[in-house]
Design a protein around this nucleic acid. Structure first.
Lengths: 154, 154
DNA sequence: AGCAATTTAGTTGCACACGATTAATCATCT
DNA sequence: AGATGATTAATCGTGTGCAACTAAATTGCT
């Protein structure tokens, strides 16, 4: 007979992730307001500041986003002058996403702004690496379950 | 002079929260598929299974959601027969959200299904309470920064 | 070469999430 | 009672997120 009461702790863990993710999103929204960037747009630029150009597919596998999310996001970044999109000559299925000169110039300014806001967060007496490791452990578990398709539909 | 390189760890922490939150969302989407419920709909029902009826405002403060999110979500839950919405007689500004008999009957079934899926997640050698405490510590920090309005616009 | 399967980006539809605004109601103060 | 301000839910607009599908291009196989 299955336990018919909710597992408070697991629910709390998921809800905590859900809540803190929204709060972080809001935090970055404020921090990035001078540049009119959202958090997903910011991490897209972060990835491109490391490697540019990248195809939509490569960007998606870095950020865990599919084209249904990325294509409109990239169009907005393009309209605001951060990136350019151009179909590859070698493989016309692919679209190369390239940073504009504007984005390259603005990079340090964005970094400085984000850093100054992140400095406001105090991570006193918190084992950072262990904490991050715990999150990744949970993520790996969820990936494993998803891959093995252990959850069957009704 | 501000540090002009991105703070990898802080970015990683935020990105980890962002990613794990999406994965958990997907996990619950699968688990709740037999009931055609999304994760936000599920936590709404969870709150109501504890206390029903509740006003939209009360629900919102429990779930950290505003009426712009809740109103359409509640309309969907109403259309699917889980809840009913009715303006309060005492204060006609408020709307009381009440569980239907269907929702009360289905409660244990939903709990059992979620529990059986959550059982698949292994939390080996992880200090659960400490981990949860760490997340809440980060949340409190973000709330403090937000409340103090320390991040000013351009 | 020719055809099927695969890959890639885009599109569509639905469901959050939230800032900003609106309309209705309630509380307060004179 | 009447004006004023506050509260509440709903609405609107924008931006994700993702499943499902489409169209075009490439690869693989014969």
């Amino acid at each position: 007979m299955p336990n018919s009461t909710p597992r408070r702790l697991d629910d709390q863990l998921c809800f905590a992730f859900y809540s803190v993710s929204k709060k972080f999103n809001h935090f970055y929204q404020d921090a990035l307001k001078p540049f009119h960037l959202t958090y997903p747009q910011y991490i897209t630029l972060l990835a491109l500041w490391e490697t540019s150009p990248m195809t939509v597919r490569e960007l998606g596998s870095h950020l865990n986003l599919d084209s249904g999310t990325l294509t409109p996001l990239l169009k907005r970044l393009e309209k605001q002058g951060w990136i350019s999109r151009k179909r590859s000559d070698q493989d016309e299925r692919q679209v190369n996403v390239t940073l504009t000169d504007y984005a390259l110039q603005k990079r340090d300014e964005v970094y400085a702004r984000v850093n100054s806001c992140v400095d406001l967060i105090s991570f006193d007496n918190m084992d950072y690496q262990q904490f991050l490791g715990g999150i990744h452990q949970v993520m790996d578990e969820l990936d494993t379950i998803s891959d093995k398709n252990l959850i069957h539909e009704s």
